[in-house]
Amino acid sequence: MHLYVAARLYRIDAIRSRIRPGAWALGALLLWLVYLGGVHLGDEALDWRWWPGQFAMTWLGILFITSVCLLVSDLATCFGYWWRPHNRKLTAGAALAGALVSAFAIYQAVRTPVVVEHELVLKDLPAHLDGTVLVALSDIHLGAQRRAAWMERVVERINAVNPAAVLLLGDQVEDEPANDPRLAGVLRAIRAPRGVWAVTGNHEYYGNAAGTIAEFEAGGVRWLRDERIELLPGLHLAGIDDIGSRMRNGGNILSGLDQLYPGAAQGATILMAHIPAAPVIDRAAARGVGLMLSGHTHGGQIWPFNYLVAQRFPYVDGAHHVGDMQIIVTRGAGGWGPRMRLWKPGEMLKLTLRAPR
């Protein structure tokens, strides 16, 4: 993609008239080497290495979007054989479109997540809990880019919803603990009388999971690791530890869920499970769970990768029904890899629970 974009951009008259071919080729080569160096360094480190790593990931996203725009132009002109008087102008227009769409995708990724509301009837919910409001977030990915200052804006938006409890659905960090001294204070500013509850995601286990758990516990967050509690009288909250490592190693991904519910779930039940794997969904529905909340997919993050994600997971984004169970898969509050989202921004869920009538 890098070579393709470099070659097509050099067809634009405004570039060809100002830059010699050798200088353009040298610049493209140097940019490619910076990209390779950034990929090698990665973007998880919290020191200077984050910048080339972040450039590499974002450049990859820009290349993809720009390549798609340029390819549309090339197909329209049969790679320059049709509309010859205009094909260079079309190439310039496609390059401009790639730049504008990329800028929009970056904006969608870095903005404060929007509130997406779901009103749902939860089976067996007691009448006195009708109207209970919860907030759920997933895939925050705190780290080198998203720090306590970004999370502070998220907390302000959470508090504006006035939830009874806040549910964090995994991938709270990029890989390693955020190591931000302000984070604990920011998390303690969340106003939720029934607490803030979390489950682990795959990224917690890519790094120091114990350190991340302790870091969030210092901010008042309580973790559910194959555990369940009674959140409110008649409303049960359960959380399973991340199944990602077991998926990668061929282990039993249902062991945590089976430990929680060897038989049918009793009462109104919400299950927090980071990865919406089909076996977990089917087993939870069979056990009588009323609502399952997941993340992990990022909603595909950059269109059209949502179609590829759908080949791996049955539900990529939004609310669905599996038998009597409802499942909501959130596209997440943050992002991973290229700091880009196309076309939908990050989100946090406002869940209003209704009792059956």
Rank of each mutant, 00 (worst) to 15 (best):
Arg248Glu: 14
Asn249Ser: 15
Met247Glu: 10
Ala184Cys: 09
Glu156Val: 15
Ser138Tyr: 04
Asn179Leu: 05
Asp180His: 07
Asn208Arg: 12
Leu183Asn: 07
Ala148Ser: 14
Val166Thr: 12
Leu231Met: 13
Thr269Ala: 09
Gln172Trp: 09
Val221Ser: 01
Gly195Cys: 02
Ala178Pro: 09
Ala198Asn: 06
Ala189Arg: 08
Leu137Tyr: 02
Glu204Lys: 00
Ala268Met: 04
Asp171Ala: 11
Arg182Ile: 06
Leu224Tyr: 08
Met247Leu: 14
Met247Phe: 06
Ala149Asp: 15
Ala148Lys: 08
Pro233Gln: 02
Gln266Tyr: 07
Phe216Gln: 04
Val161His: 04
Ile158Val: 10
Ala136Asp: 01
Pro193Gly: 11
Gly234Cys: 10
Leu168Cys: 10
Pro233Leu: 07
Ile243Arg: 05
Leu232Cys: 04
Leu134Ala: 11
Asp180Leu: 05
Pro163Ala: 01
Ser255Pro: 00
Ala265Thr: 07
Asp180Pro: 13
Ala148His: 08
Asn252Trp: 15
Val186Glu: 04
Gln172Ala: 14
Arg194Asn: 10
Met151Lys: 05
Ala209Asp: 11
Leu168Trp: 13
Glu217Gln: 15
Arg153His: 13
Leu183Lys: 04
Glu176Gln: 11
Asp171Asn: 09
Asp258Gln: 11
Ile158Ser: 01
Gly263Cys: 03
Thr212Arg: 10
Arg157Lys: 15
Arg188Ile: 00
Glu230Trp: 14
Ile243Leu: 08
Ala136Asn: 00
Asp242Pro: 05
Ile253Thr: 10
Thr212Ile: 14
His141Lys: 03
Ser245Ile: 11
Glu174Asp: 14
Glu230His: 11
Leu187Cys: 07
Gly219Phe: 02
Gln266Ser: 13
Thr132Met: 04
Ala210Asp: 10
Asp241Tyr: 01
Gly143Lys: 04
